[in-house]
Amino acid sequence: MTWFKNLSTGKKVLLCVGLWIALVIVVYALTGSSGKNDEYQPQNEFQLDPWVSIHIGGLDLSINKAVLYLFLTAAATTATMIWIARKMRQRPNNVQTAVEAVYDLANNNITRGNMPAEYARKWFPFVGALFFFLLFANLIGYIPLPTNSHETTSIFGFEIPSFALYAATANISVPLVLTLVVWFSYHVEGVRARGVRGYLATFIPSGTPGLLKPLLFVIEVISHFVRIISLSVRIFANLLAGHLLILFMAGGMVTLLGLAALGVVTLPVAIVFFIFETVLIAGLQAFIFATLTAIYLGGAVSEAGH
């Protein structure tokens, strides 16, 4: 292998890529266009089938995959946090240090950094719970769980649902309703802080010429409504896109196109995306959602408007 070490970095990369392409060609020559499945519908990975049908009045409260993930998220969030809280030590171990760092991020950075101290005390449980809930929801979304009710797989002779990736936050309903809670909360808090007239007055920046006032007010109202979309769709789209990318790269494309050899190329990409999503996107999107929540709340109550 000494000859390999003696090559320059560029040549090493070229050699590896060449070997990779050769591998693709070999696999293609062996498998041809096998593996095509016209029945396969990738979007069905995100299909919500009612597993336990519950209807109350006109409301469909059936338990489906999203609800299962919500339960898992709530259970994992509360169990982890309470477990850590019970084990708080004066001299922390590594896990406690990590949780403390995240807690401190939620408390000081996200909440206190964006609103006055008395509101931070009042709203931290909400913002903090939101952050941890979304963080766990996103992270659980990258653990393969046997949740595919269309396909089954056999493990030690038992037929169980196929393993699949799904996330509560990859469903628009979840971030949308949380966004609505945030949206109403910050408006209510703004009105409580300065009354209806006073709060609406903050929509118009001071020093605006009289003629522009109605226009600016309308723009501001629209921007508040746009927040509902932007806040919810940001996390939803990120998570859905991440899951779709992993899905397609890890086999979806191969199945749809019937090119088994393509898997040699896409599988490493899927792994890279998986790591990228879990390490960065899951935490980042939870952080952004919580931070924007705190900013909206802070903006509604602070003296300078927003």
Partner: peptide, 12 residues
Amino acid sequence: GVGVMVWTLIAF
């Protein structure tokens, strides 16, 4: 979906 929304509110 309204159902998932309600469950979200409950879980959260």
